[in-house]
């Protein structure tokens, strides 16, 4: 645990020093909204359509973060340095997932209000509690799978391709739940509560893949 905190601190420090990942993710999300405005030919969105646009925007921005998650480790010897230390190797999974989760939350703190401002028809306020709940659960799943996929992709030759191409289908169940779950709070005729089944699917997804990632992560570090 102390190791994971040390790695996470280091990752956040690198991000604060470079400002590379999170600003890029946020800008990307905003641009996606603009594209959706023209692509769909709509000034405001609500309900399922709004939920879908938000989901896709978060997903694509998240992909940027997933792609970059292990790049410094690979290019600047971080893997070797970590593996030399007498520490539990799974703490790297924990730290990286926590870092990615943090990036996603910060992204959404920017993207969701912007979405409310630019595209959302109904007002954002009443939707927030339900929206936040679904997004946090989805972020957890994206963080776990993203970390796993990123750790695999970073050691491949075509890592910019392998990450998204493997990650996208793996994320589909979480994205289905996210898109369907956020539709109710974003409904045109007033925010409804999130159907329980989508929260359950997200929770199940998070738990299953967190356990699985924990079990297999070590095999990605051996050499």
């Amino acid at each position: 645990m102390r190791t994971a905190v040390a790695v996470l601190r280091k990752d956040l420090l690198v991000e604060l020093r470079t400002f590379e990942t999170v600003p890029a993710m946020a800008l990307f999300a905003l641009t996606t909204f603009v594209i959706f405005h023209f692509g769909l030919g709509r000034a405001t969105l609500s309900g399922q359509l709004a939920a879908g646009v938000l989901t896709v925007s978060v997903l694509f921005s998240g992909m940027l973060g997933i792609n970059r998650l292990f790049v410094t480790e690979r290019e600047q010897g971080g893997f070797d340095a970590f593996l030399l230390a007498p520490v539990d190797r799974t703490s790297l999974l924990l730290a990286k997932a926590a870092a990615l989760f943090t990036f996603l939350v910060v992204l959404e703190l920017i993207a969701v209000p912007a979405f409310g401002l630019l595209l959302l028809g109904p007002s954002l306020g009443p939707a927030l509690p339900g929206l936040a709940l679904v997004l946090l659960l989805a972020d957890l799943g994206i963080a776990v799978i993203g970390t796993l996929v990123s750790a695999i992709a970073v050691h491949t030759r075509a890592r910019d391709l392998i990450g998204p191409v493997v990650g996208l289908p793996l994320l589909i169940p979480a994205l289905i739940a996210m898109a369907r779950g956020t539709a109710a709070p974003l409904a045109a005729n007033g925010a409804a509560s999130v159907p329980l089944k989508w929260l359950e699917v997200l929770a199940l997804y998070d738990v299953v893949f967190a356990l699985l990632a924990y079990a297999v992560f070590d095999f990605l570090l051996e050499d």
Binding site: R2, T3, A6, L13, R17, Q76, A81, V87
Partner: peptide
């Protein structure tokens, strides 16, 4: 095996924590 964007002290402190 040092992070280019961190300072020498930050790098070494990170390792000291590990």
């Amino acid at each position: 095996l040092l992070y280019r964007d961190l300072s020498g002290r930050e790098n070494l402190r990170y390792h000291a924590r590990l």
